[in-house]
């Protein structure tokens, strides 16, 4: 957890030092958030909530870790940089026909719909796992979004 906090801190420094405008504020639930003004949520860096990212990492291990890893294809494809990526495009992973034919970019909305009911989102997918709790979906998506932003910041 400490390691993640350090990464988030480094990531925040990268964000602040980049051309985007960042400012801290407190949201309606009293949580401190880092707001990042960019070209919208379709292009990194993305706005992320530090507290949600920490919660999302823990939830990711418990809810997704049975089948997924960040950097290796296992039962499911690797997840690093999944946010903002086109569905069904991880190299060396054998997708179901449903995912290969899915013309979707993974965003807050599409990931949320996917996690609510993947077989309704892409009938014929091999992922049957549904994540019912909206707050858990939100935290996990925030974590994945953070990872995509961190990769983008590192690449620049």
């Amino acid at each position: 957890m400490k390691k993640l906090s350090n990464v988030i801190l480094c990531f925040s420094v990268v964000l602040i030092s980049s051309s985007v405008v960042a400012k801290d504020s407190v949201n309606s639930s009293g949580r401190e958030i880092t707001q990042v003004t960019s070209q919208g949520d379709s292009v990194p860096p993305y706005a992320v909530s530090e507290q949600l990212v920490v919660k999302g990492e823990e939830l990711y291990k418990r809810r997704c870790g049975g089948c997924h890893s960040l950097d290796n294809n296992r039962i499911g494809p690797r997840h690093r940089d999944v946010y903002g990526r086109k569905a069904g495009t991880v190299a060396d992973y054998k997708y179901s026909k449903a995912l290969r034919n899915l013309d979707v970019i993974w965003t807050d909305q599409t990931l949320d719909e996917w996690l609510v009911n993947p077989t309704a989102f892409a009938k014929g997918t091999s992922m049957g796992f549904r994540l019912k709790k909206a707050d858990e979906r939100h935290a996990i998506i925030e974590y994945l979004k953070f990872l995509s932003s961190a990769s983008s910041a590192n690449a620049q």
Partner: peptide, 18 residues
């Protein structure tokens, strides 16, 4: 432990889709 815990959650989460 991580794998077993993940597997338990995976099975419970996929039941509604089966």
């Amino acid at each position: 432990l991580d794998l077993e815990r993940g597997a338990a959650n995976a099975y419970l989460g996929l039941i509604p889709s089966l």
